[in-house]
Amino acid sequence: MSTIYIVKEIYIYPIKSLAGISCQQANAEEMGFENDRRWMLIDAENQLITQREHRILSQFYPQISDGKINITFKDQTHEFSIAENLNNPIHVDVWDDKSEVVEVNESTSKWFSEQLGFECKLVKIIKSGDRKHESSQLKETFNVSLADGYPYLMIGSQSLDFLNEKLADKITILRFRPNIVIGTQTAHEEDDFTTFKIGEVQFKNVKPCGRCIMVNNDPENGKLKKEPLKTLSTYRVVNNSVLFGTNIVGLNSGVIRVGDEVVF
């Protein structure tokens, strides 16, 4: 009898490096889930801002309702429309890729600047093709969002369970910021998936995801810890990269839901 893999959790992260949103279903698009990492913060020099340098970003919590995104940080809130932008093209680097973005509005940039204590702007990627990412593994170029590299990150449940067996202080899947969590039988078997279908969407596996110091940032309090990278580095290092989860791309648009089966 073949193994049945079921989608257990779905997440989107509207603004790069801020907290995510748990979803029961999501619209899959070429660039990733709808509203997933379409926005990010940049500094006065138009450099991207992430949790790697600013762990406090994990304490900004977005919610989406009625075409608006509401951000809560401590006792402060701010809201802006998903559709709004100033139509002023800004050219930025997202790691090794060039991207064109636009500022959302001046009041939103001012609010984030006040909360973070330095000048910044909230910007948005508008359309498919405004950022392209070349896969050295597949020798293909993909239209992507403002995610680090690929549109989707998938993690199997047993990968986390196997890690937690080795940790004194257990962690949640939120450390790894997945888009799709599936129930698995064996740790890291998702690394070996090739092409598969979830709901209406065909996916292709690109490569396991190399992890950075950001996974040591506890999203509950924004404090940097030694784990899980310390333990992962004892058994998940390949070519000097610590691997956890796998990067995938969608081959068509459609809806996927919690409870959907992974079909090969």
Rank of each mutant, 00 (worst) to 15 (best):
L116I: 09
E103I: 10
W95A: 10
I90V: 13
D97R: 09
E106N: 13
D96V: 06
E100K: 12
K110D: 11
K110E: 13
L116W: 05
D97F: 04
E106W: 00
E119C: 12
V104R: 01
E119G: 13
F118R: 03
E114Y: 07
D93N: 15
V102I: 10
V94M: 09
S109Y: 05
L116T: 03
G117Q: 05
W111A: 04
K110P: 00
N105R: 04
V94K: 01
E103T: 08
S113P: 02
S107A: 15
H91F: 15
V94I: 14
V94A: 07
F112K: 03
S113D: 02
E103W: 05
D97S: 13
W95G: 08
V102D: 11
H91L: 15
S109E: 07
E119F: 13
V92P: 02
W111R: 02
Q115D: 04
E106D: 13
S113G: 06
S99N: 06
S99T: 10
G117A: 09
V101D: 04
K98I: 13
E119L: 14
V94F: 04
S109K: 00
D93W: 15
V92R: 01
D96P: 00
D93E: 15
N105G: 08
D93H: 15
F118Y: 11
L116A: 07
W95C: 08
V101S: 03
V104N: 01
H91M: 14
E114D: 12
N105A: 10
T108F: 02
V104D: 01
E119Y: 14
S99H: 04
I90K: 04
E106M: 13
E119D: 15
E106F: 10
S107E: 13
N105H: 08
K98N: 14
T108L: 05
V104A: 04
L116S: 07
Q115R: 05
L116N: 04
V102F: 14
E100G: 00
S113A: 10
E100N: 10
W95R: 01
T108Q: 04
H91G: 11
I90G: 03
V104I: 12
V94T: 06
N105K: 01
V102S: 13
K98A: 15
N105P: 00
F112H: 01
T108I: 07
Q115M: 12
V101K: 00
F112P: 00
D93P: 00
I90Y: 06
Q115K: 11
V94P: 00
T108C: 05
V101T: 03
S107M: 11
S99L: 09
P89A: 09
H91W: 12
V101G: 03
V92N: 03
G117M: 08
E114L: 09
D97W: 00
G117N: 05
W111Y: 09
S109P: 03
K98T: 14
V104P: 00
E100T: 15
T108V: 09
E114R: 02
F112Q: 02
H91E: 15
S107L: 14
Q115C: 11
T108S: 05
L116H: 04
